[in-house]
């Protein structure tokens, strides 16, 4: 699988909420607004998983959302990366003992980059995207 040239320059991101408290959502939207402005690097949110390179997943994955998460993951075209934003997607966070969770996220779909924090700061999310980029470059170099 060869990565296209345009992929080196811009990352399009689809955001998927799997039962999060909205804390990570507002930080993700805050990240794409002019105060932090990652769009100068070509990073932008898109409306469909079919247009996306990166899937940002937030939340602890409730039982009702788990099949939908898998479906969205399958709709993202290859090569793709999954970023898990927030502590509850990594370990359950404060919701660790809930009866209604199928998560953490890596139990449902494979995750490439973890951004910890409850919620992570916009700077941390941008740092996570940079890490995702580096991983894609490594993938490309290996081919």
């Amino acid at each position: 699988m060869k990565l296209t040239k345009s992929f080196n320059r811009s990352l399009w991101v689809f955001h998927l909420n799997t039962g999060s408290c909205n804390g990570c959502e507002i930080e993700i939207v805050a990240t794409i607004t002019p105060h932090y402005d990652p769009e100068r690097f070509g990073i932008k949110l898109v409306g469909s998983p079919k247009h996306a390179d990166v899937l940002l997943v937030t939340g602890p994955v409730t039982k009702m959302m788990a099949p939908k998460v898998r479906r969205v993951y399958e709709q993202v075209p290859d090569p793709k990366l999954v970023m898990c934003i927030g502590s509850c997607g990594q370990s359950g966070g404060v919701f660790y003992d809930s009866y209604n969770l199928d998560g953490p996220i890596d139990q449902v779909i494979p995750v490439d980059v973890y951004v910890p924090g409850c919620p992570p700061r916009p700077e941390a999310i941008i740092y996570g995207v940079v890490k995702a980029w580096e991983k894609l470059e490594r993938l490309e170099a290996a081919q």
Binding site: G19, T62, L101
Partner: peptide, 14 residues
């Protein structure tokens, strides 16, 4: 609705 139900009240009672 119902996709975001995490059982917070149940957890709180523990």
């Amino acid at each position: 609705p119902g996709n975001v139900h995490r059982g917070i009240e149940w957890m709180g009672m523990r």
